[in-house]
Design a protein around this nucleic acid. Structure first.
Length: 432
RNA sequence: GCCGGGGUAGCUCAGCUGGUAGAGCGUCGGGCUGUUAACCCGAUGGUCGGGGGUUCGAGUCCCCUCCCCGGCGCCA
């Protein structure tokens, strides 16, 4: 007899066998003589453990010490019973309370603010447990895909010197008397590394000091970024599409139980894992929106309302490419066929989720880059090392950034990004 | 930063046109041998976010301030 994850007991193959379950008390119901202890464990599932009158009396001291979220070791025989949640229960022969728990602060029905104050305890919920199991698979699949595809993992810095994309959205840090900032993107450092490793990627934490008040923004998030020499925008988009398909496929394959628990409709994911992702230009997006009766014209940014309308047009994730230069960052390469636009792309998830990936071919021409930096009003001196990349063996290259929590949010069908990360930093929330 | 909503019991909330506060849940005690957020009986519960003002009297009206939620902008 060994220790068994609860999820395996619910498979049914262990019926009649003696098992040991270790976990935490999820529900506790005493009825005179009998005691029902519902236990949860890291498998994200629960099992009902039943003590009959004789056993309950034998372990009376232990029963007295039980409470919601107490950690327990339970030994007993697995039995099929239609009255048990999940169809199986454990008929208990031994009960041990490892760590007591009295008056657990979360009892059900609490509001979001209270729950966030108790995130360190709320995190034990079955819902969050299942979400983080999905997130693990997403991260693992990302790493697998890029390793198999010949990319190198690198480790860019988090502490950076200057305001690369404009200072307002950066968190300042005191670096021994010098002003430093927490990185909001590893892109420039990845651009450096393609000159040796050619195809590189990194998973880092990125920080944005924008006081965003939406369900899609975190101040601190997990950023997957990739950069490759010799890749044009379309090469990069193919990689993005293939890797997203790979991830969705892996989650469908390995985390179907979790998705089911989360109430996720699998169908859009199955489509996203199989079908080609459409590509539309910014100009076509504007036309679609105008046809839908929206008041937008060429040159307007695609806001949340516009994104929502667009995502309802497609069943799969889809690309929007070639945005007006003014709407996008200075480092994006100008389209040789149309200098009004840049070779940038966004990947929008369907079902109203919106932007998950943003990428572009990078401007590799020093003169053009310098004039774009000047036009933004940035200090050229801050960009010397970045400009050096265009002076010594400049090469066409492209890259992108993917918001891991946004991807998880879409795949898991969450209605708020805060549940895609254990300790969400947003709305000035720092505790716990 | 902007627009909207809200801070009343441990939690979720009610409290009309001003007259010093209620419910459900929880907690505690008791009962119950199949409960599923168990149920039944009893008990416990508050400087009404903070400060100032009007008034005989403020949870309620006015001003200031702090915090939180939903949305926008920004983005991943």
């Amino acid at each position: 007899m060994g220790r068994i994850p609860i999820r395996e007991i619910l498979d049914g193959s262990l019926e009649g066998r003696r098992v040991e379950v270790r976990g935490w008390v999820y529900r506790l119901r005493r009825l005179g003589g009998k005691v029902f202890v519902v236990v949860r464990d890291g498998s994200g599932s629960i099992i009902q453990c039943v003590l009959d009158k004789v056993t309950a009396e034998k372990f009376a001291d232990e029963v007295d010490r039980l409470g919601i979220e107490a950690s327990v070791v339970v030994e007993g025989v697995v039995r099929s019973d239609p009255r048990a949640p999940g169809g199986y229960e454990v008929s208990v022969s031994r009960l041990e309370v490892v760590g007591e728990s009295h008056n657990f602060p979360i009892k059900g029905g609490e509001g979001i603010d209270y729950l966030l104050d108790n995130r360190h305890l709320w995190i034990r919920s079955r819902r969050l447990t299942n979400v983080f199991r999905v997130k693990d698979t997403v991260l693992r699949a990302l790493r697998e895909f890029y390793r198999k595809d010949g990319w190198w993992e690198v480790t860019p810095p988090i502490l950076t010197m200057s305001a690369v994309e404009g200072g307002a959205t950066l968190f300042p840090v005191d670096f021994f008397g010098k002003k430093a900032y927490l990185s909001q993107s590893a892109q420039f450092y990845l651009e450096v590394m393609i000159f040796s490793l050619e195809k590189v990627w990194a998973i880092t934490t990125s920080f944005r000091a924008e006081r965003s008040r939406t369900r899609r923004h975190l101040y601190e998030y997990t950023h997957f970024e990739a950069e490759a020499a010799w890749y044009d925008m379309y090469d990069m988009m193919r990689v993005v599409e293939d890797s997203v398909k790979y991830i969705v496929g892996k989650v469908l394959e390995e985390r179907s139980g979790e998705l089911e628990f989360l109430g996720r409709n699998i169908r859009p994911l199955e489509i996203a894992a199989d079908e080609k992702y459409p590509v539309i230009t910014y100009e076509e997006a504007i036309e679609i929106l105008q046809r839908k009766g929206m008041n937008v014209k060429w040159g307007d940014d695609l806001g949340a309302d516009e994104e929502r309308v667009l995502t309802s047009e497609f069943e799969t994730p889809f690309f929007v490419v070639k945005f007006p230069k003014e709407l996008k960052a200075f480092y994006m390469k100008e389209d040789p066929d149309d200098p009004r636009v840049v070779l940038g792309f966004d990947l929008l998830a369907p079902e109203g989720y919106g932007e998950v990936v943003g990428g572009s071919e990078r401007e590799d021409d020093e003169e053009k880059l310098v004039s774009r930096i000047r036009a933004e009003g940035f200090d050229l001196g801050d960009y010397e090392w970045y400009l050096d990349l265009r002076r010594y063996g400049s090469v066409p290259h492209s890259g992108f950034g993917l918001g891991v929590e946004r991807l998880v949010m879409w795949i898991a069908g969450l209605d708020h990004i805060r549940d895609a990360t254990p300790f969400p930093r947003f709305r000035d929330r720092l505790y716990p």
